[in-house]
Nucleic acid binder design. Structure first.
Lengths: 242, 242
DNA sequence: TAACTAAAATTGGTTGACAACTTATGTCAC
DNA sequence: GTGACATAAGTTGTCAACCAATTTTAGTTA
């Protein structure tokens, strides 16, 4: 499943190191496309892809006919490429963000939102009954809550969190152990509680319900986790005040 | 300053539409690199850049020797490319997220964090006195609060919010009107209040202080905003319960 | 000194060729 | 038939050479 890094990612990383070694300042023009290709010992097309990657990350700016310029400060440069995020770290972030979002959404939610959320839960129920590993109903529900805020930034942030989840190595390993549908039944019930609070436009209740839900998810994963695993990050998830 | 879309972005957009027209399902193998190049009437290298873009967005997966496969559902496909985010929408998201983070950080903050935050505020003060448009101290302070949570996901989210801010067209326009250093003095004072609460490990106080701070920023920007501007999104920022 | 022109530098893009890998097809032994 | 293996076909990955488009620099001229 998990394959090696694609070439342009490796090259992009090498390029970051190269830039850092040269000690450029923000705004400086860095090496030319051709020079980069030569320095990395690859062809121009491969170098271009790496540069494109850095441009998308907003590290450099490519100006046609002029050159490539350093945009962002270099402290962002040499971070590891695959900083795999522990599931509990991710859950902690979700708990903080999504409970706030749920509280806010209770104020802004519309009738149409409620209808769509109910459909999402229906989809989730079918997924549980089918006993397959389809979590699209789950994801959709959480996403719809963010959409109910009418704030695209919040929607993006929630989407990004789910994307990080899907990319997480440890999450994948953890998921393999979730055979028991009882857990998913519990989570579905949590979701229904959240929906109820939203329907009542009860901000504090929705916030509380989302918090509790993610607390339950944490507990489940904690049970399933291998504490001996050196990458285990459950300890991070200390019980913070609610 | 703001330049036209780079070619690969336009092509990526065209490609998204093309994929959508073909009506692929998730997991399907889509057109080959060469076919895409032909369909978009460009060379293979240009097509590759567009494909690379979609791959980075996690819309497709490129498997060497096999083909290009649709990964994400197509509802994410045809979103507008440059959805410029209004400053108030952004501020709303920041208020929700960063006040929660501040509350959490009050529990986890260390002495070293406090020291670094104080340095950031010192930097901010110098920036104000110099009357230049350097907001790096401001940004650093907010970032350090996120770092104090020891949660890399939260740090990433805050960084992403500032990146969005820097890219925002409307924010840039708005910023041109901030001549008055009184505003920035006020914000610095807000920051000091936040720092005090963090130092006392007062979670609710820190949350409250951060909320108030971003409320003040909102008020300032509201004053400076042109309500006649068709893109004005201040109305989004209704006074939600604190 | 100023304005215009030409040249050089640089990114943007195309194409053909081949390598590397994956998938499909066919063949042969049993 | 069936499985194992070999072969071929299909596809992405990469390079190199070439030219176009644009910007920057240098030079020249009035």
């Amino acid at each position: 499943m998990r394959k090696g890094l694609r070439r342009y990612q490796e090259l992009a990383h090498e390029l970051k190191i190269l830039i850092q070694q040269k000690g450029y300042k923000v705004g400086d023009r860095i090496l030319t496309e051709r020079q980069i290709a030569e320095a990395l010992n690859v062809g121009r097309s491969a170098a271009r892809e790496a540069i494109l990657m850095l441009e998308i990350e907003d590290l450099v700016e490519v100006r046609k006919g002029s050159g490539i310029y350093l945009v962002s400060d270099s402290n962002r440069l040499a971070r590891p490429i695959v900083d795999d995020i522990g599931p509990f770290e991710l859950l902690q972030a979700r708990q903080l963000l999504e409970s706030s979002i749920a509280g806010f959404a209770a104020v802004t939610v519309t009738k149409n939102d409620i209808v769509r959320m109910r459909e999402a839960l229906e989809m989730e129920r079918k997924g549980i009954e089918a006993k397959n590993n389809d979590y699209s109903g789950d994801e959709l529900f959480h996403r719809l809550i963010a959409e109910a805020t009418q704030n695209s930034v919040l929607v993006d942030m929630v989407s990004e969190l789910w994307r990080k989840r899907d990319q997480s190595l440890m999450w994948a390993r953890l998921h393999e152990r979730i055979f028991d549908t009882d857990y998913r039944e519990q989570w579905l019930k949590d979701h229904e509680d959240i929906l109820s609070a939203l329907q009542l436009k009860d901000a504090e209740g929705a916030r509380q319900a989302m918090w509790t839900h993610l607390e339950n998810v944490r507990d489940t994963l904690m049970e399933l986790s291998d504490v001996e695993d050196p990458h285990f990050d459950g300890y991070l998830f200390s019980n913070t005040a609610n």
